[in-house]
Computed example of a mutant assay.
Amino acid sequence: MQSGNPALNKNAFLDAASGALLSHDSEAMTLNGTVNKTGLLLVLVLVGAMFSWSHYTGPASLPALLPFVLGGAILGLILALVTAFKKTWSPVTAPIYALAEGVFIGALSAMFETRYPGIVIQAVGLTFGTMAALLLAYRSGLIRVTEKFKLGVVAATGGVMLLYLASFVMGFFGHSISFINGHNSIGILFSLAVVAIAALNLVLDFDMIESGVNAGAPKYMEWYGAFALVVTLVWLYLELLRLLSKLQSRN
């Protein structure tokens, strides 16, 4: 059973580990190494976000942020796909991805902050608070990653992605799925569900990284594991922004 994060799955680490066994001189992936690289990628996300945010000087500057939103999102998507298919490139592609994604979320966050003052710091706090709480629950054994747990999270994640894809395609024909962006009770409940699903993906990510360490995956998989965690954290942050904006719009 795979992680709900498309960049993080059991086969990714096991395949890499089996390759590493062929070379006795190769260094193995470690948990501390993955944690350190995750921290570095998050710093790069912050650097990218500060760069694009610095171009915000008030509501009149919002149109100037659109190139950062679109450019960062497109480049981030391309780099994510490259990293997912060429894991050995992750020591190079993962840091560049983090910078690109930072530029994207920095500009987007400035747009949200303009309309809903204080929303960004709330979303950031909730994102890292959720990660810390789930990591503690996972390490303490409070949350057990069983096959049923994995199946439920993966199925729910797939359902959300299909809904988003359908909404995107329908947008070309002037239609939309109202509850995705709706600010009514149904829209808020939907966002709460998606936030929960994104958060639970972090638990699967922790488990898959630990499995990679135990399997003796090669050193470069530390970068890949860190990259995958950042992918999930960015998704969680964006969903929290969406949820908080819906809640504040009702005040």
Rank of each mutant, 00 (worst) to 15 (best):
I209L: 08
L162V: 11
G216L: 03
L192A: 13
I186K: 05
G171R: 10
L189W: 12
N201W: 11
L189K: 00
A196I: 10
N214D: 10
A215Y: 03
F173S: 03
L192S: 11
L202V: 08
I209T: 15
A217Y: 08
V213G: 04
A217L: 01
L162Q: 03
L163R: 12
S185K: 13
H183C: 15
S176G: 08
S167P: 02
F190I: 09
V195T: 09
G174R: 00
S211Y: 14
L204F: 08
A198E: 14
A193F: 05
S167A: 13
L162P: 15
A215T: 03
I177N: 14
N201T: 09
S191A: 05
G187N: 09
S167T: 07
I177H: 08
S167H: 09
N181L: 12
D205I: 07
L163E: 05
G171D: 09
D205K: 13
H175C: 07
S191T: 02
I186N: 02
G159H: 03
Y164G: 09
G187Q: 10
S191Q: 01
L162R: 11
G212I: 04
E210F: 04
L202C: 10
Y164N: 07
N214K: 04
A217M: 06
F173N: 04
D207I: 02
D207V: 00
L200A: 14
A215N: 01
A217W: 13
F206E: 12
V195Y: 04
V195D: 03
G212S: 00
F173Y: 00
S185V: 09
S178Q: 15
M208T: 15
S178A: 07
I186L: 11
A196L: 15
N201K: 13
A217S: 06
G182S: 05
D207Q: 12
H175E: 09
A193Q: 07
I180K: 14
D205M: 08
E210V: 05
L202T: 04
V160S: 02
L192M: 13
H175F: 10
M170P: 09
G216E: 01
F168M: 12
N214L: 13
L200M: 12
L189A: 12
N184R: 11
